[in-house]
Write a protein that binds this DNA or RNA. Structure first.
Lengths: 220, 220
DNA sequence: GAGGCCCTCCCCCGTCAGAGGGAGGGGAAA
DNA sequence: TTTCCCCTCCCTCTGACGGGGGAGGGCCTC
């Protein structure tokens, strides 16, 4: 029996997936979660063998969930609306077995679930092309891996267009500390200034482009 | 009987919606379409009273469908993944009755369908706030049409991560001139600094995100 | 011709950003 | 324990950035 956990903030999507998967033999949907926090808890509690994971969620997004999964993790299939996203590569690097756009036919989703249970992958043509392009471009070196967690936080804020003192305020730091972090970020990323660092952060999917300037929580 | 047409390129979403709506009394799903062309044909052929319309679709998108609907149109409920989008306003202006994020609970979707059949609207709090904000101030930031051609050129270079003097060199200008252009760009876009301006440029597609840091023309 | 916008360059001036030091505390690994 | 890295804050200093102006020339429209 393949135990599946569905993680998606859209209720219609969860119901649709459950409806489809429950009709399949040998597949059992053991849980649904609308966000990342509950997903991590559900993984520990339910021990699913396969997790269908949405990338875009309020609060903790799919990438963060992937980062925080322990070593004893389920096989992860990422199911998302965005193909052109740089986060495809990031997700694969973080251990996702399959990366399917939501436009995928339901048969393929079922196929991916069965493949994932065996450690296999299902690749849509569009995704395959994107991955190949990334590999070909060489040195995809998820350059963000060199950053410490704190630096990644700072870069996230920086990629949203915030100034040093705004970042300091939002992270409850002195602005000198922020400057220190920014300096090492620039050095590690090999870029010249904060604008270039912001671009790298956006390219690596640290912040979705369309959320980049929206003041989260506080307003500008 | 409320005759519903579902338009969405995601099969899981269509199945989920059909599953939910078919369980409701007085509601009948008369058709599903994966794209805009077939949606327009289905509207003519099936005469639905309510249409659930996705914004993001390959080929003709939701806005275009709204534009091309004749006067004898079904009540339209837009169902999409994007809240922060300026397309919310555009869709409402084009006659959409309700604009629901896909995170909406299924009950609310059913409610919206029944309301739409009577010509009514269902507003999610997030969308309501967005519409109010839009109404309150005419144009938000991000409009590149206010820029002069030269300013757009400068913003393009800026969005690639270049400094003022690099921009000056690449456009054969004095750097004081570049500063003048940058200042009016910041003013017209309503942003605080060059990083935010770069983000706007990237969001507006002035530079494709994956070409942002590549030195233009030559590589690396 | 006069007014308007755009492009170009110039000035001053204050602030911010980034480089290059140092330094203390904590935690993990040797 | 020592060692190393991370996080935090501090200092100085330079140059870039960005907000005020102004000014001349080109082009179009009225």
């Amino acid at each position: 029996m393949i135990r599946v956990l569905i993680v998606d903030d859209h209720e219609v999507v969860r119901q649709g997936l459950r409806f489809v998967l429950d009709q399949e033999e040998g597949i059992e949907v053991v849980g649904e979660c609308p966000d990342g926090d509950r997903a991590l808890a559900a993984v520990r509690a339910l021990r699913p063998s396969v997790m269908l994971l949405d990338m875009v969620m309020p609060g903790m997004d799919g990438l963060e969930v992937l980062r925080r999964l322990g070593p004893d993790r389920p096989a992860v299939i990422v199911l998302t609306s965005f193909q052109e996203d740089e986060r495809v590569v990031a997700a694969v690097r973080l251990g996702a077995l399959s990366y399917l756009p939501k436009t995928t036919a339901v048969d393929r989703v079922v196929e991916a679930v069965r493949a994932a249970a065996r450690g296999g992958s299902v690749l849509e043509p569009g995704i395959a092309a994107l991955l190949l392009r990334q590999v070909r471009r060489g040195e995809p070196r998820g350059r963000l891996d060199a950053l410490t967690p704190r630096e990644r936080e700072v870069l996230t804020a920086l990629a949203k267009g915030r100034s040093n003192s705004e970042i300091a305020r939002s992270l409850s730091l002195g602005k000198e500390t922020v400057k220190t972090h920014v300096s090492s970020i620039l050095a590690k990323l090999g870029v010249a200034d904060r604008t270039q660092a912001a671009i790298v952060g956006l390219q690596q999917g640290l912040v979705p482009l369309d959320e980049a300037l929206e003041a989260d929580g506080s307003q500008r």
